[in-house]
Design a protein around this nucleic acid. Structure first.
Length: 265
DNA sequence: ATGACGGTGTGGCACCGA
Protein backbone atom coordinates (compact mmCIF):
# COMPACT_ATOMS: atom_id res chain seq x y z
CA UNK A 1 0.00 0.00 0.00
CA UNK A 2 1.59 3.22 -1.20
CA UNK A 3 1.24 6.76 0.13
CA UNK A 4 2.59 9.64 -1.92
CA UNK A 5 2.92 13.40 -1.56
CA UNK A 6 3.51 15.94 -4.33
CA UNK A 7 3.59 19.71 -4.33
CA UNK A 8 2.39 20.41 -7.87
CA UNK A 9 2.76 24.21 -7.88
CA UNK A 10 -0.53 24.84 -9.72
CA UNK A 11 -2.84 21.93 -10.39
CA UNK A 12 -4.16 23.73 -13.46
CA UNK A 13 -0.74 23.55 -15.09
CA UNK A 14 0.26 20.15 -13.72
CA UNK A 15 -2.99 18.17 -14.09
CA UNK A 16 -1.84 16.17 -17.16
CA UNK A 17 1.38 15.29 -15.35
CA UNK A 18 -0.49 14.16 -12.25
CA UNK A 19 -2.83 11.99 -14.32
CA UNK A 20 0.13 10.47 -16.17
CA UNK A 21 2.01 9.90 -12.93
CA UNK A 22 -0.98 8.14 -11.32
CA UNK A 23 -1.31 5.86 -14.34
CA UNK A 24 2.33 4.84 -13.91
CA UNK A 25 2.18 4.90 -10.09
CA UNK A 26 -1.26 3.70 -8.95
CA UNK A 27 -0.70 4.61 -5.30
CA UNK A 28 -3.48 4.17 -2.75
CA UNK A 29 -3.18 7.77 -1.57
CA UNK A 30 -1.72 10.88 -3.19
CA UNK A 31 -1.60 14.13 -1.23
CA UNK A 32 -1.28 17.25 -3.36
CA UNK A 33 -0.20 20.72 -2.27
CA UNK A 34 -0.16 24.17 -3.85
CA UNK A 35 -3.23 23.62 -6.00
CA UNK A 36 -3.52 27.39 -6.52
CA UNK A 37 -7.18 27.16 -7.46
CA UNK A 38 -10.59 27.55 -5.91
CA UNK A 39 -12.78 24.49 -5.27
CA UNK A 40 -15.09 25.32 -8.18
CA UNK A 41 -12.08 24.93 -10.49
CA UNK A 42 -10.93 21.61 -9.03
CA UNK A 43 -10.69 18.99 -11.84
CA UNK A 44 -12.72 16.36 -10.00
CA UNK A 45 -13.96 14.53 -13.10
CA UNK A 46 -10.42 14.00 -14.43
CA UNK A 47 -9.49 12.19 -11.21
CA UNK A 48 -12.72 10.19 -11.13
CA UNK A 49 -11.97 9.09 -14.69
CA UNK A 50 -8.50 8.05 -13.52
CA UNK A 51 -10.04 5.86 -10.83
CA UNK A 52 -9.52 8.14 -7.83
CA UNK A 53 -11.76 9.77 -5.30
CA UNK A 54 -10.80 13.32 -4.38
CA UNK A 55 -11.18 15.46 -1.29
CA UNK A 56 -9.98 19.01 -1.77
CA UNK A 57 -9.60 22.33 -0.04
CA UNK A 58 -8.52 25.21 -2.21
CA UNK A 59 -8.39 28.99 -2.39
CA UNK A 60 -7.58 31.59 -4.99
CA UNK A 61 -3.97 32.02 -6.22
CA UNK A 62 -2.13 30.42 -3.30
CA UNK A 63 -1.95 27.25 -1.21
CA UNK A 64 -4.65 24.59 -1.53
CA UNK A 65 -4.44 20.86 -0.74
CA UNK A 66 -6.13 17.66 -1.87
CA UNK A 67 -6.21 13.95 -1.08
CA UNK A 68 -6.67 11.52 -3.95
CA UNK A 69 -7.62 8.05 -2.76
CA UNK A 70 -8.38 4.76 -4.45
CA UNK A 71 -10.82 3.92 -1.68
CA UNK A 72 -13.53 6.26 -0.52
CA UNK A 73 -12.16 8.68 2.06
CA UNK A 74 -14.19 9.38 5.17
CA UNK A 75 -14.25 11.96 7.95
CA UNK A 76 -12.63 14.69 5.86
CA UNK A 77 -11.38 17.61 7.95
CA UNK A 78 -10.04 20.85 6.48
CA UNK A 79 -7.30 22.91 8.12
CA UNK A 80 -6.24 22.59 11.76
CA UNK A 81 -9.19 22.47 14.15
CA UNK A 82 -8.88 25.09 16.89
CA UNK A 83 -6.31 27.04 14.87
CA UNK A 84 -7.71 30.01 12.99
CA UNK A 85 -6.14 30.19 9.56
CA UNK A 86 -7.23 32.13 6.49
CA UNK A 87 -5.04 29.93 4.28
CA UNK A 88 -5.99 26.49 2.92
CA UNK A 89 -3.10 24.33 4.07
CA UNK A 90 -4.30 21.05 5.56
CA UNK A 91 -6.72 18.30 4.64
CA UNK A 92 -7.20 15.10 6.61
CA UNK A 93 -9.18 11.95 5.85
CA UNK A 94 -9.47 8.30 6.81
CA UNK A 95 -8.92 5.40 4.42
CA UNK A 96 -9.36 1.67 5.01
CA UNK A 97 -6.41 -0.74 5.02
CA UNK A 98 -5.72 -4.35 5.85
CA UNK A 99 -4.54 -3.17 9.30
CA UNK A 100 -7.69 -1.17 9.91
CA UNK A 101 -8.41 2.48 9.24
CA UNK A 102 -5.48 4.77 8.53
CA UNK A 103 -5.77 8.48 9.20
CA UNK A 104 -3.99 10.73 6.69
CA UNK A 105 -3.02 14.34 7.33
CA UNK A 106 -1.80 16.16 4.23
CA UNK A 107 -0.24 19.59 4.73
CA UNK A 108 1.28 22.47 2.85
CA UNK A 109 3.43 23.89 5.63
CA UNK A 110 4.09 27.62 5.82
CA UNK A 111 7.14 28.82 3.89
CA UNK A 112 8.10 31.52 6.39
CA UNK A 113 10.13 33.76 4.05
CA UNK A 114 12.93 34.65 6.49
CA UNK A 115 13.62 34.56 10.23
CA UNK A 116 12.42 37.71 11.95
CA UNK A 117 9.53 38.36 9.59
CA UNK A 118 5.81 38.19 10.32
CA UNK A 119 5.60 35.21 7.98
CA UNK A 120 8.21 33.36 10.01
CA UNK A 121 6.24 34.07 13.17
CA UNK A 122 3.13 32.70 11.42
CA UNK A 123 5.13 29.60 10.50
CA UNK A 124 6.13 29.01 14.14
CA UNK A 125 2.56 29.50 15.39
CA UNK A 126 1.20 27.28 12.64
CA UNK A 127 3.69 24.52 13.49
CA UNK A 128 2.68 24.69 17.17
CA UNK A 129 -0.97 24.47 16.16
CA UNK A 130 -0.22 21.50 13.94
CA UNK A 131 1.67 19.73 16.72
CA UNK A 132 -1.26 20.07 19.12
CA UNK A 133 -3.55 18.76 16.39
CA UNK A 134 -1.34 15.78 15.55
CA UNK A 135 -0.90 14.88 19.24
CA UNK A 136 -4.66 14.67 19.46
CA UNK A 137 -4.99 12.76 16.18
CA UNK A 138 -2.43 10.19 17.36
CA UNK A 139 -4.43 9.57 20.51
CA UNK A 140 -7.52 8.87 18.42
CA UNK A 141 -5.77 7.17 15.48
CA UNK A 142 -2.77 4.94 16.24
CA UNK A 143 -2.33 4.37 12.50
CA UNK A 144 -1.49 7.86 11.27
CA UNK A 145 0.33 9.10 8.17
CA UNK A 146 1.41 12.75 7.97
CA UNK A 147 2.58 13.87 4.56
CA UNK A 148 3.26 17.02 2.65
CA UNK A 149 5.55 19.89 1.84
CA UNK A 150 7.06 20.64 5.24
CA UNK A 151 9.28 23.50 4.09
CA UNK A 152 11.94 22.45 6.63
CA UNK A 153 15.23 20.61 6.08
CA UNK A 154 15.59 18.12 8.91
CA UNK A 155 19.40 18.04 8.84
CA UNK A 156 22.35 19.38 6.90
CA UNK A 157 22.13 16.16 4.87
CA UNK A 158 18.86 17.49 3.44
CA UNK A 159 20.38 20.61 1.88
CA UNK A 160 22.71 21.11 -1.07
CA UNK A 161 24.50 23.93 0.78
CA UNK A 162 24.01 23.66 4.55
CA UNK A 163 26.96 25.93 5.35
CA UNK A 164 26.06 28.68 2.92
CA UNK A 165 22.40 28.54 3.93
CA UNK A 166 22.89 28.09 7.67
CA UNK A 167 20.11 29.74 9.70
CA UNK A 168 18.35 30.90 6.54
CA UNK A 169 14.76 29.88 5.79
CA UNK A 170 14.19 26.09 5.77
CA UNK A 171 17.49 25.70 7.63
CA UNK A 172 16.98 27.50 10.93
CA UNK A 173 17.40 25.85 14.31
CA UNK A 174 13.89 27.03 15.24
CA UNK A 175 12.32 25.24 12.26
CA UNK A 176 14.33 22.08 12.83
CA UNK A 177 13.30 22.05 16.50
CA UNK A 178 9.68 22.22 15.40
CA UNK A 179 10.18 19.27 13.06
CA UNK A 180 11.93 17.33 15.84
CA UNK A 181 8.97 18.04 18.10
CA UNK A 182 6.58 16.63 15.51
CA UNK A 183 8.71 13.47 15.23
CA UNK A 184 8.84 13.26 19.02
CA UNK A 185 5.07 12.78 19.07
CA UNK A 186 5.79 9.31 17.71
CA UNK A 187 6.09 9.88 13.98
CA UNK A 188 8.80 8.34 11.81
CA UNK A 189 10.40 10.09 8.83
CA UNK A 190 10.02 7.15 6.44
CA UNK A 191 12.68 8.30 4.00
CA UNK A 192 15.27 8.77 6.74
CA UNK A 193 14.37 5.40 8.24
CA UNK A 194 15.02 3.67 4.93
CA UNK A 195 18.10 5.81 4.12
CA UNK A 196 19.71 6.36 7.52
CA UNK A 197 23.22 7.28 6.34
CA UNK A 198 23.57 11.06 6.45
CA UNK A 199 25.41 12.12 3.31
CA UNK A 200 27.91 14.96 3.38
CA UNK A 201 28.60 15.07 -0.34
CA UNK A 202 25.90 16.76 -2.41
CA UNK A 203 25.89 13.97 -4.97
CA UNK A 204 24.88 11.43 -2.32
CA UNK A 205 22.05 13.48 -0.82
CA UNK A 206 18.32 13.05 -1.43
CA UNK A 207 16.30 16.08 -2.47
CA UNK A 208 12.60 16.55 -3.22
CA UNK A 209 12.80 20.14 -4.47
CA UNK A 210 15.17 21.96 -6.82
CA UNK A 211 15.28 25.67 -7.61
CA UNK A 212 13.82 26.59 -10.99
CA UNK A 213 16.51 29.21 -11.35
CA UNK A 214 20.07 28.86 -12.51
CA UNK A 215 19.75 25.24 -13.69
CA UNK A 216 18.95 24.13 -10.14
CA UNK A 217 17.95 20.60 -11.07
CA UNK A 218 20.83 20.04 -13.46
CA UNK A 219 23.27 21.33 -10.84
CA UNK A 220 21.46 19.42 -8.08
CA UNK A 221 20.82 22.55 -6.04
CA UNK A 222 18.07 20.97 -4.00
CA UNK A 223 16.48 20.44 -0.61
CA UNK A 224 14.63 17.56 1.02
CA UNK A 225 11.56 19.33 2.36
CA UNK A 226 8.75 16.95 1.37
CA UNK A 227 8.09 14.15 3.83
CA UNK A 228 5.95 11.13 4.57
CA UNK A 229 5.76 10.36 8.29
CA UNK A 230 4.24 7.21 9.75
CA UNK A 231 3.18 6.52 13.32
CA UNK A 232 4.90 3.85 15.44
CA UNK A 233 2.10 1.37 14.78
CA UNK A 234 2.86 1.55 11.06
CA UNK A 235 6.66 1.61 11.38
CA UNK A 236 7.11 -2.19 11.18
CA UNK A 237 5.33 -2.11 7.84
CA UNK A 238 7.49 0.51 6.13
CA UNK A 239 8.99 -1.32 3.15
CA UNK A 240 10.44 1.59 1.20
CA UNK A 241 10.36 5.33 0.72
CA UNK A 242 11.50 6.78 -2.58
CA UNK A 243 11.74 10.18 -4.20
CA UNK A 244 10.64 10.01 -7.81
CA UNK A 245 12.74 12.46 -9.79
CA UNK A 246 11.24 11.59 -13.16
CA UNK A 247 8.48 14.26 -13.16
CA UNK A 248 11.15 16.92 -12.57
CA UNK A 249 12.42 16.11 -16.05
CA UNK A 250 9.04 16.87 -17.66
CA UNK A 251 8.32 19.95 -19.74
CA UNK A 252 7.02 22.62 -17.35
CA UNK A 253 7.76 20.57 -14.24
CA UNK A 254 6.78 21.36 -10.68
CA UNK A 255 9.82 22.36 -8.65
CA UNK A 256 8.91 19.51 -6.25
CA UNK A 257 8.83 15.78 -6.98
CA UNK A 258 6.69 13.01 -5.48
CA UNK A 259 7.78 11.14 -2.36
CA UNK A 260 6.32 7.64 -2.05
CA UNK A 261 6.16 5.44 1.05
CA UNK A 262 5.22 1.79 0.71
CA UNK A 263 3.75 -0.25 3.56
CA UNK A 264 3.98 -4.03 3.37
CA UNK A 265 1.76 -6.60 5.04
C1' DA B 1 23.99 41.73 -1.85
C1' DT B 2 20.89 40.80 -5.74
C1' DG B 3 18.48 38.07 -8.99
C1' DA B 4 17.98 34.28 -11.58
C1' DC B 5 12.53 30.92 -12.68
C1' DG B 6 7.76 29.97 -12.63
C1' DG B 7 2.75 30.69 -11.31
C1' DT B 8 -1.22 33.88 -10.59
C1' DG B 9 -3.75 38.08 -11.16
C1' DT B 10 -6.53 42.02 -14.23
C1' DG B 11 -1.26 43.03 -15.46
C1' DG B 12 2.00 46.20 -18.73
C1' DC B 13 4.38 44.72 -13.30
C1' DA B 14 3.81 43.01 -8.20
C1' DC B 15 3.60 39.33 -5.11
C1' DC B 16 4.87 34.84 -3.61
C1' DG B 17 7.42 30.70 -3.37
C1' DA B 18 12.01 28.06 -1.52
Amino acid sequence: MQFATWNVNSLTVRLPQVIDWLAANPVAVLGLQELKLTDDKFPLQAFLDAGYNASFFGQKTYNGVALLTKAQATNVVKNIPNFTDEQARVIAATVPSSWGDIRIVNGYFVNGQAPGTDKFEYKMNWLRGLRDYLRNELEKNPRLVVMGDFNITRDDADSHDPEGLRETIHHTTLEREQLKALLALGLIDAHRLVHPDLAVDKKDKFFSWWDYRDFGFRRNRGLRIDYVLASEALKPHIASCTIDKTPRKNERPSDHTPVVMELRP
